[in-house]
Simulated assay, not measured.
Amino acid sequence: MVYGQKPDTLTVMGANKVEAFMGKKTRIITAIEGKVIRVTKAKGGWFEMDAGNSKIIAAHFKDYNITLPKELTGRTVIIDGVAQKLFIADDLQHLAGDTVTGKKQHQVKTDPKRKVTFEVRGLLVDK
């Protein structure tokens, strides 16, 4: 089954290798293969993929009109799209009208397991 555009299956890499492959790059266009942990939101195609070493890739479709079935959980899929690294900021940049100086006002909380997000153009159910 294919959702969205049919992914390019010639240059597929494992989901556990994406972060290392990216190196210092913040965004790359690639195709990866991995197991779906869970479908978090069916409408818009939001799901989580196992990236090995207890890491998770948070993925969603570029096209919001895609609806994924919950039965996709546990299946191996090939996804094609844009992988991005998330960065944790020590200080948030000034918000409009924020003039307080000195102590940090805001704290950014991110799940350390989710360092890579993926904007999916196409998904192919493999197994």
Rank of each mutant, 00 (worst) to 15 (best):
A89M: 12
L68W: 00
D98W: 03
D63Q: 10
A15M: 05
I57M: 05
I28K: 01
I37S: 08
K35V: 08
F21V: 15
G74R: 04
Q107E: 12
Q5N: 12
T117P: 02
I29Y: 11
V18M: 05
M13N: 04
E119I: 14
K85A: 09
A83F: 08
K104M: 13
A96L: 12
R114Q: 14
E71R: 10
Y64F: 12
L86W: 02
T11I: 04
Q5S: 14
K62W: 04
T101N: 09
L123G: 00
F87W: 06
Q107W: 08
T101Y: 03
W46N: 14
D98I: 08
D111L: 10
L123D: 04
V125M: 06
A51L: 03
H94M: 11
D126W: 12
V77L: 06
D50Q: 05
V12D: 01
K103A: 15
I28G: 02
I37R: 07
M22C: 09
V12W: 00
I37K: 07
R27P: 01
I79Q: 01
I56S: 09
A59R: 07
T30Y: 00
R121W: 00
A58G: 08
R121F: 05
Q5A: 12
D126H: 14
D90Q: 09
K24F: 03
T11P: 00
N65Q: 13
K24D: 13
H94K: 13
K41W: 02
K41A: 12
A58T: 11
Q84E: 15
K103M: 12
L10G: 14
E119H: 13
T9Q: 08
F118V: 02
Q93F: 05
A42T: 10
I88A: 11
K43D: 11
G45Y: 01
I66C: 06
T26C: 05
D90R: 06
N16K: 13
K25P: 01
G97S: 09
R75H: 15
K6N: 11
E19P: 01
K104H: 11
K85Q: 11
L124D: 00
R38V: 10
T11Q: 10
I37A: 03
I66L: 09
A59M: 09
I56Q: 04
L95G: 14
H94I: 07
L86V: 09
V120F: 02
H60A: 14
R75G: 02
Y64M: 11
V100C: 06
H106P: 03
A31I: 02
I66M: 08
V82G: 00
W46Y: 15
K109Y: 15
G44I: 07
G45D: 03
G81K: 03
P7A: 07
G14L: 07
R38K: 15
E19V: 11
R27G: 02
A20N: 11
